[in-house]
Write a protein that binds this DNA or RNA. Structure first.
Lengths: 196, 196
DNA sequence: CTAACTAACTAATAATCGTTAGTTTTGGAT
DNA sequence: ATCCAAAACTAACGATTATTAGTTAGTTAG
């Protein structure tokens, strides 16, 4: 009757295997058969642990979207300078990306295959996250800390880089996390031009 | 017997319709039935104009990959300053993105569904493009024009933004092209920090 | 020992997929 | 009016999909 978290349960194994394949071939391009084969079992055996293929996707996306949302609210409410908040957001992205790069790739595209209810929830979380992000950027601009650029465009530039990190992280795995953080932060904030 | 380019042939209509749906639901998530319905015809009628579903994807991806490759080589060989080359590359991305945003989204993910031969060709073009890009960045760094950062990471930051542009362009369509170019260029090169 | 549970299996389901074959409709040129 | 080709159609194909039902081996608890 133990109800432990069982972080390494069979279900979690399935979800992680699926995440790897989803990332490689997309959700629709990945069959339950291929997931089962990767685990050395037959397809229907998966249903002893999961309710449906879509449940795997929901779990992956909503778990991560919730984490992003919660951590963002923490940062938003923290009693620190707005520019420092931006700094922490970047660190957050890098942390979560290194922690689960496969799931990050899914968040960009495969959310369209969520069931309607889950998709709605996912998009709400994403929207809240972006609104928080926008408000922090606006604060930085108002204080004269950031360039007076259109905040939507600024958010786009930052998020483009942060959301693509998962691809980079797996290609150049030898990169140090601290080094990566510093490079991304200075690259985005200070710019790529050399001021001699 | 006319062999005109027929830019607005039925085949091109199919390809553009498909591109729109591919972008929305992904290649694997889009059925030929949905493409046919969007055009008001029955599924098998598509085969009077195309050879296969994969041919549509090949056409979209290889056409654009070739364009990028050719235009990049033009820029690379041009007798202009290296920093000016970087400037032109950014303009190139914005130009092609505004011209065909649907196809741009496909280039990020759906190339994995190309047939082996086409996939190989696509990846070769992409590789050449990135190598050219890297070499230009290296020149800029050698001249002291750009910050002495790891060139792969620098390329990653720039390409992340440029390759995500298609999503931005459709969401904020009212944005002026010139304005967009200037914002992206200054945002990336000068950085987001305000130097007061 | 046995009863219950877990997690694997085989077999089969309906639905959908891309694709082919064969046929009819359409519209313009002779 | 007729001919022809382009482009639509209907009907059907085999393959694959996610999923269900029913069964069995292995492990654990009482």
């Amino acid at each position: 009757m133990e109800r432990s978290p069982e972080l390494h349960s069979r279900k979690q194994q399935i979800i992680q295997t699926a995440a790897k394949l989803f990332r490689k071939n997309g959700f629709k391009g990945t069959s339950l058969k291929s997931i089962a084969e990767e685990m050395g079992i037959k397809t229907p055996s998966l249903y002893n642990h999961i309710a449906s293929k879509n449940e795997i996707l929901s779990h992956l996306l909503l778990t991560n979207a919730n984490t992003f949302h919660l951590r963002m609210e923490e940062i938003q409410k923290a009693n620190i300078d707005s520019l420092q908040k931006l700094d922490r957001i970047i660190s957050l992205h890098i942390e979560l990306t290194l922690q689960n790069p496969d799931a990050m790739g899914l968040m960009l595209n495969d959310w369209v295959h969520l069931d309607p209810k889950d998709r709605e929830e996912y998009l709400e979380l994403r929207e809240k996250y972006e609104q928080n992000f926008l408000s922090i950027l606006q604060q930085c601009i108002d204080k004269g800390q950031l360039v007076p650029m259109n905040t939507n465009l600024m958010l786009f530039i930052i998020l483009s880089t942060l959301r693509s990190l998962y691809a980079w992280c797996t290609r150049y795995r030898d990169f140090n996390r601290i080094e990566l953080e510093n490079s991304v932060k200075t690259g985005l904030l200070e710019g790529l031009l050399n001021k001699y």
